[in-house]
Measured scan of single mutants.
Amino acid sequence: LQAFIKTLTGKTFTVEMEPSDTIENLKAKIQDKEGIPPDQQRLIFAGKQLEDGRTLSDYNIQKESTLHLVL
């Protein structure tokens, strides 16, 4: 599935991932794409901060969901 990552500066980019991917995997993909170390990334979806060990499906993240990236 493709999801949108929106930063506080208003920049939006897309990442490809599977519902079974962990938040940790997602942070690694963001690092590959944007060069931001995972330990500096905080991802917010539906008002909740996402925990590394959980999966996208745990948070009911669907295709074309928008996640907010806070540094």
Rank of each mutant, 00 (worst) to 15 (best):
Arg42Tyr: 11
Lys27Pro: 01
Gln49His: 12
Glu34Thr: 15
Arg54Lys: 14
Thr9Arg: 11
Asn60Glu: 06
Gly53Ser: 12
Glu18Tyr: 14
Gln40Met: 11
Pro37Glu: 06
Gln41Ser: 03
Glu51Asp: 08
Phe45Cys: 03
Thr12His: 07
Ile30Tyr: 01
Ala28Asn: 11
Leu50Trp: 03
Ile36Ser: 04
Ile5Ser: 01
Asn60Arg: 06
Val70Asn: 05
Lys29Cys: 04
Pro19Cys: 06
Gln2Lys: 14
Arg54Glu: 06
Thr22Ile: 04
Leu50Asp: 01
Met17Trp: 12
Ile30Trp: 01
Thr9Met: 10
Gln2Cys: 10
Gln31Ser: 12
Asp39Leu: 09
Pro19Arg: 09
Val70Gln: 09
Ile44Gly: 02
Glu24Cys: 07
Lys48Ile: 15
Gln41Val: 07
Gly10Phe: 04
Lys11Gln: 08
Leu67Gly: 02
Phe13Leu: 06
Ile23Asp: 00
Lys29Leu: 09
Gln62Arg: 10
Phe13Ile: 09
Lys33Arg: 12
Ser65Lys: 08
Tyr59Pro: 01
Ala28His: 12
Arg42Gln: 11
Gly47Ser: 04
Thr12Cys: 10
Glu24Ser: 13
Met17Ala: 10
Asn25Arg: 14
Asp58Trp: 12
Gly47Gln: 04
Val70Asp: 06
Glu64Leu: 12
Thr66Asn: 05
Asp58Gly: 03
Thr7His: 06
Gln62Asn: 14
Thr7Asn: 05
Lys48Leu: 12
Thr66Asp: 04
Phe45Glu: 00
Thr9Ser: 13
Leu69Asn: 00
Ala46Ile: 06
Gly53Leu: 08
Glu51Ala: 08
Gln41Gly: 02
Thr9Leu: 09
Arg42Phe: 12
Asp52Gly: 06
Thr12Trp: 10
Asp21Leu: 04
Phe13Ala: 01
Lys29Ala: 07
Thr66Ser: 06
Gln2Ile: 15
Thr9Tyr: 14
Glu51Met: 09
Glu64Thr: 10
Gln49Ser: 10
Asn60Ala: 08
Thr22Tyr: 06
Asp39Thr: 10
Lys29Ile: 09
Phe13Cys: 02
Ala3Glu: 03
Leu26Asp: 00
Lys33Asp: 03
Gln2His: 12
Lys27Met: 03
Arg42Asn: 10
Lys48Ala: 10
Thr14Cys: 08
Met17Ile: 14
Thr14Gly: 05
Pro37Met: 05
Asp39Phe: 10
His68Val: 14
Ile5Glu: 02
Gln2Ser: 10
Pro37Gln: 05
Ala3Leu: 15
Val15Phe: 09
